[in-house]
């Protein structure tokens, strides 16, 4: 199955938030009570019922101002820390290379929350489960584009085969020039969500400039996890060898005799 990818071209995003709503509609996620806290952005952050949201960010210098709109949500890593840590297999790679979540298997351990370099998975206390974007897996399986892409009026969101999206992304970044760059193919073995950013990645709030699977997660899952079996196996084998080579440590004969008095 061809790898699928969503391309987010922030230069074309107008912040209309059609995607944010379409996501809730398709995934039947309820709204929560919010209040204006001095920005257009709401809910303030991703939530267990908000899998994508537009981050509104103002950058001002003396003469000019920029208003950046960035659609935040799961990046669908090829080397996904969340999948790596998920104990139950609830988080898993799909045939399209995306990362989906099987909520029935989720045990609410929240390990993915800590592991994700993009701070995406969100825990819901009521259901004791984790939620995040699955790139509308059921829609992809039905040969439809994800709901957010469908809703986007400006063409800021595109969806297709990974190779095509990569080509498109680099072409667009070249067109835009300046600081424009492609974000997403150079780390975690490539993400299945790509950005064309107009500014340097470090300019955007809550977007890691150099994301990676955290070293701690690698030490844990790639080193200690096998090591635990290795060590246990080693000890068992050692004990066995000890038993057959050295033999058990028995009390001395005479004392044994004496002890039996």
């Amino acid at each position: 199955m061809a790898q699928k990818t969503k391309l987010i071209d922030v230069s074309k995003c107008t912040g209309c938030r059609g995607c944010q709503l379409a996501c809730k509609q398709w995934n039947q996620q309820p709204a929560a009570q919010t209040e204006n806290y001095g920005t257009y952005q709401n809910p303030p952050d991703l939530q267990s019922n908000t899998w994508t949201l537009i981050r509104f960010q103002e950058i001002a210098d003396k003469d000019s101002v920029k208003w950046l709109f960035r659609k935040d949500g799961c990046m669908h890593c090829t080397d996904a820390a969340c999948v790596k840590v998920c104990p139950s297999g609830a988080l898993h790679y799909t045939e399209y290379g995306t990362v989906a979540i099987n909520n029935e298997r989720c045990i609410g351990c929240k390990e993915c929350v800590s592991a994700c370099p993009f701070d995406i998975p969100r825990y819901d206390r009521v259901t004791d489960k984790i939620y995040k974007c699955d790139l509308c897996l059921t829609r992809i399986q039905a040969a439809l584009e994800p709901a957010c892409v469908k809703a986007c009026p400006t063409g800021a969101l595109k969806f297709g085969d990974r190779a095509d999206m990569l080509k498109l992304a680099y072409k667009r970044a070249a067109e835009l020039g300046g600081n424009a760059n492609v974000y997403g193919d150079k780390f975690v073995d490539g993400t299945h969500v790509l950005y064309v950013l107009q500014e340097k990645p470090s300019t955007y709030e809550k977007l890691p400039a150099n994301p990676s699977v955290p070293l701690s997660i690698i030490a844990w899952k790639d080193l200690l996890k096998p090591l635990s079996l290795l060590a246990a196996g080693g000890v068992i084998a050692g004990s066995f060898l000890h038993y057959i080579i050295h033999g058990p440590k028995l009390p001395d004969e005479d004392q044994n005799h004496k002890g039996g008095e």
Binding site: V85, E111, S114, A115, P214, S216, I217, A219, W220, L224, K225, L227, S228, A231, A232
Partner: peptide
Amino acid sequence: RWMFVLHALGFVTIF
């Protein structure tokens, strides 16, 4: 994240 590592390390040892 480092708690995960230590927890696993502890497990390796205890196990």
